[in-house]
């Protein structure tokens, strides 16, 4: 009961990410360790959080895309991974359905409740009431925080005792299959991101980054630094011309 309350609070704090500068405290890699702390296994919480972070890498709200709710999914997934002793695979099998459920609830809030709050704000704007607009804005956010608190609380309170039985019933081939899937899934996140920012002009740099990592084992930070240099070589920032394409890196392309 106390643990369920505390986990609910973690979900509440996680959602406050968006009240404090979109600082990514809502991500599983951050909330996982907090869950671990509450359930008495910090190390496992850190590990499961990292695994869920990679699995949910592409599930990030960009533009008007609302992803499955990683807060509720991440907190409950990590919690059940610890209470059942199942590790990262269990976390993912639990986290994804739960995240989808929470996403459905999110969508109700985002398409019905919050626009109504918006029209309320319009009324106060017509009266010149600055304070009320701020209050409505913050209140709208905290309503969602409270909803996430409730889902997480009830999810853990109702589910934790029965989860062990469910986990035991899962055949070994499914678990090891999902481990394989967990290894592959980050590729989906990268494909999503690539689709967002990649175009024909920068596509060779994807392979440059890949080859630097696969053949030369350059860590990602090193690749980022090389990326800055590649951009400086490729783009002439000093002249006033439009983007010019030069062939400086072509010998590295496939």
């Amino acid at each position: 009961m106390l643990q369920a309350l505390l986990l609910g609070c973690i979900a509440f704090i996680g959602k406050c990410d968006l009240a404090t500068g979109t600082n990514l405290i809502q991500r599983p890699i951050v909330l996982g360790p907090l869950v671990g702390l509450v359930l008495g296994d910090l190390k496992l919480g850190v590990e499961v959080g990292a695994a869920l972070e990679l699995a949910f890498l592409g599930q990030y709200s960009v533009g008007a895309f609302i992803p499955p709710n990683v807060i509720v999914g991440g907190v409950l997934g990590t919690a059940f991974a610890i209470t059942t002793g199942g590790g990262a695979e269990i976390a993912f099998t639990m986290a994804f359905p739960i995240a989808l459920l929470a996403q459905a609830i999110d969508n109700v809030l985002f398409s019905v409740v919050r626009p109504m709050m918006g029209t309320l704000a319009d009324k106060f704007a017509a009266k010149g009431n600055v304070k009320a607009i701020t209050m409505i804005h913050m209140g709208t956010g905290f309503i969602t925080c409270t909803v996430l608190f409730l889902i997480t609380f009830f999810g853990f309170w109702l589910g934790s005792s029965q989860m062990q039985a469910i986990v035991d019933a899962i055949p070994a081939v499914v678990t090891s299959g999902l481990t394989i899937a967990c290894g592959i899934l980050p590729a989906m996140g990268f494909a999503m991101l690539a689709r967002m920012i990649m175009n024909k002009k920068v596509a060779p740099f994807f392979f440059l980054g890949f080859l630097l990592s696969s053949y030369f084992r350059v860590p990602v930070v090193g690749i980022a630094f090389l990326g800055v240099i590649a951009a400086l070589i490729k783009i002439d920032f000093t002249s006033n011309n439009q983007v010019t394409v030069q062939g400086g890196m072509d010998d590295e392309d496939f």
Binding site: G183, A187, I197, F206, G209, V220, I223
Partner: peptide
Amino acid sequence: MFAAGILGTMVIGGMTNELVSV
């Protein structure tokens, strides 16, 4: 924006090798 695109794609390329395990 072009520079940001170069940097971003290169990092994604590196990550694809480092973090995907098949």
